[in-house]
Design a protein around this nucleic acid. Structure first.
Lengths: 227, 227
DNA sequence: TCAATTGTTTTTGTATACAAGCGAAGTGGT
DNA sequence: ACCACTTCGCTTGTATACAAAAACAATTGA
């Protein structure tokens, strides 16, 4: 069997490596994750592979069907909308708390992250914007001063990573995202918690909708998901 | 070493067994979970024990410090408050959605669960009330018609199980809890989503506060936590 | 020709064996 | 006597071996 480029396994854990491979689409939803194949690919025994797969299954990215193996969890579109709904609520909570509690430094970090987003959006590199966007939201999580909430938000953001990335491909979505960020920053700087909360909530909800559009637009042409 | 009563391991998984043991206090926060000890206790090899511990660590009940073992996660009081805050928001979201979406049958289930709580509260058995209470909240999760949200709510409720149980020991807490439930049911039946949301939110937040009281009241006498 | 049953093969789940790191205790030096 | 260093034991992390279940294929009977 033809060996595809195997990442050198720097210092990152097996779990992170698999997480990335799933997010990037190397292992598409529904595909089987064979233990021995993975073991040979990463040049380890089955044991650490199994442990990584268990972690991923608890985290929700992988489904382990007893006695028949691990599969990349295929999230239906309706469940995806549900997840974005919860994500919206978590982020709304974050920004609400952030409005009350955030320090001047944290405000500066948020503004800087926003400006980085603007820069990344200008040059037509969608992946750069994707990462700048992640840091923007991270700034809000951290500013909530609720460590547990921030963890939950990060975990769910990570679980939705693949879909958030795709959703950015929708026409004019980056521009729209940016405008929403601006509104959020404005509200936060004004200290208008209620406004910030509402804008952020719909900023997330719109992602679920745009993803829906995206899927609908390709319809039969599932193959191009990995284009 | 003296063998304490080892549960016969009916059909439940190792993970659930350990979860229970932690919730019940057999393994108090901070205590070390030795792999070989657990292996002999459950009469299995280290492998399935390790896998269960990994699951628990991802779920957040256990902390695995590399190369030094697994410990029951010791949740500080401030983090606990954070967790109750998030729980409150999740439940508020559940009831808000439930108000809009719940069917007549689901309303009936909720009312029935509430009545079961009243019955359980009358007879002075705190554990019965605890379980009836769980079913009451479960009815709300299910009625949200957002499967993912319901899963998240259940997971967090489970993680807080030990603390919710203790918090019920505070003077008059059961009576107070019941009154709050009544208010929630009323609001839901009226279809007043905003009211239901607010009442439920503070119903959860109050648990964090009452737990705080509870800890403060014993103060030095940590030993009696397991009374 | 098709279905069913049986035998083979592949794959998961568990046990055991082995390697390597951390901690504790002991030893030697100052 | 006190501190640093070394060594030994115990525990985790990983590899391998084995058992059992599921998938697959082939053969036989209708």
């Amino acid at each position: 069997m033809m060996e595809v480029k195997t990442r050198p396994r720097t210092a990152q854990t097996l779990r992170e490596a698999l997480e990335d491979d799933i997010a990037v689409g190397r292992y598409p939803p529904g595909s089987r994750l064979d233990e021995v194949t993975l073991a040979t690919r990463f040049a380890v025994s089955r044991t650490p592979i199994r442990e990584a797969l268990i972690e991923l299954s608890v985290a929700g990215l992988v489904e382990i069907r007893p006695r028949r193996g691990a599969f990349v969890r295929d999230i239906g579109i309706s469940r995806l909308v549900e997840m974005f709904q919860v994500m919206a609520e978590l982020e709304a909570m974050c920004v609400r708390l952030a409005c009350r509690r955030m320090t001047a430094e944290e405000q500066a970090v948020l503004v800087a992250a926003h400006e980085a987003c603007i820069l990344a959006a200008d040059q037509q590199t969608p992946d750069d914007y994707f990462h700048a966007n992640e840091r923007f939201h991270e700034a809000i999580y951290a500013a909530s001063h609720n460590g547990f909430l921030a963890e939950q938000a990060r975990a769910l953001q990570n679980r939705l990573k693949a879909y958030r990335r795709l959703q950015l491909r929708v026409r004019n979505r980056v521009k729209g995202s940016l405008a929403e960020h601006q509104a959020i920053v404005d509200a936060v700087l004004e200290g208008d918690a209620e406004k910030a909360e509402n804008v952020l909530r719909s900023h997330i909800l719109i992602q679920g909708e745009r993803f829906n559009d995206f899927v609908a637009s390709l319809d039969g042409a599932k193959a191009s998901l990995l284009s």
